[in-house]
Simulated scan of single mutants.
Amino acid sequence: MLLDDNPRGRQAIDVSSAFTGIALITVLLRLYTRFFLVRCAGVEDYMVTLAMICSIGLTICIGIQAEYGMGRHIAELKPQDMRHTLKAFWASLIVYYLSLGLTKSSILLQYRRVFPTKKFRIACWATMGVVIAYTIWTVFGSIFACLPIRAFWTKEQPSKCINQFAMWFTNAAINIVTDFAIIILPMPVIRRLNLARRQKQALIGIFAVGGL
């Protein structure tokens, strides 16, 4: 299917590719700094690399979906194209949730390196536990959303499928809550640092930009 006749699909590819490109440049700069300049790479660097690979995979899946009709009205799609786009969508959910979990875990591990206090580490591990549990649930929930698995894209009967909209909205809510938890986590520690007020505000601003 020609993307020239699918402007919404083309738009999805353009936007996802642009932001994935920005993220890739940022990650490469980080890895260069950690491996070659400061020579102090950690587990979090490997995790964010895996997250970047998953993010690239997500963009590829979006491209495949657009190629087979994502962005068009469902009435315009042939059954074969519908199966192809749903199969790519199924794969995109898996790499999406993996990327989220790896990114959040990388940030929390970075926090532990920067803020080594006992209470903060306990808070980090508690948040990490929630993130890991969430990631396992979302990945396996996406893989086995339908039984048999192929029913996700074939819509064959008989089959059993979870209420996907309920699952996606629940996952989104938990994702947002963990995002806010990760953003807020270092704020009390920064406020207690023996720094000038402007320096504290600058640090909080840096973390706030990361949250954005």
Score class of each variant (00 low, 15 high):
L77Q: 05
A88R: 00
P79M: 01
R8V: 12
N163A: 14
L58H: 09
D81N: 07
I162S: 13
R72N: 03
F19V: 11
V95E: 12
F165N: 10
T178F: 11
G205E: 15
K87S: 05
K200H: 13
M128T: 08
I143D: 05
K87D: 11
I149R: 02
I22P: 04
Y68I: 00
I149Q: 00
L93W: 06
L86E: 04
T33D: 01
G205W: 11
A172S: 09
I132D: 10
S55W: 06
V209N: 02
A123E: 06
K155A: 12
S106R: 00
Y32R: 09
V139L: 15
S16H: 03
C124V: 04
L86F: 02
A88M: 01
G42P: 02
F19D: 11
V139S: 06
A202M: 15
M187C: 13
L28F: 08
R191P: 14
N194T: 11
V139F: 02
G69P: 03
T127A: 06
V95P: 03
G57W: 03
D5T: 04
I184N: 09
A173P: 06
R192M: 08
I204C: 14
I136N: 07
I60K: 01
Q199M: 10
Q157P: 04
T135A: 13
L86R: 07
Q110F: 11
F140H: 11
I56V: 09
V209G: 08
L37P: 02
T154V: 04
E76S: 12
K78A: 11
L28T: 04
A172D: 13
A208N: 08
I53D: 06
I62F: 05
S159R: 06
I60W: 03
F144I: 00
Q65K: 03
S99W: 04
A12H: 07
T103R: 05
E76Q: 14
I60G: 03
K200F: 08
F152D: 01
F89H: 13
T33I: 07
S92A: 15
G9F: 02
R30L: 15
G57L: 01
F144A: 03
G63P: 03
A166Q: 15
L98E: 00
L31A: 01
K155Y: 07
W125M: 11
L102P: 07
N6A: 10
E44D: 15
P116Q: 08
R198S: 15
G141R: 12
W125V: 07
M47G: 09
A41L: 04
F19L: 13
I184Q: 13
A133Q: 12
L102V: 05
T154E: 09
V15R: 14
F140E: 04
L102R: 00
V38T: 05
L102N: 02
L31F: 00
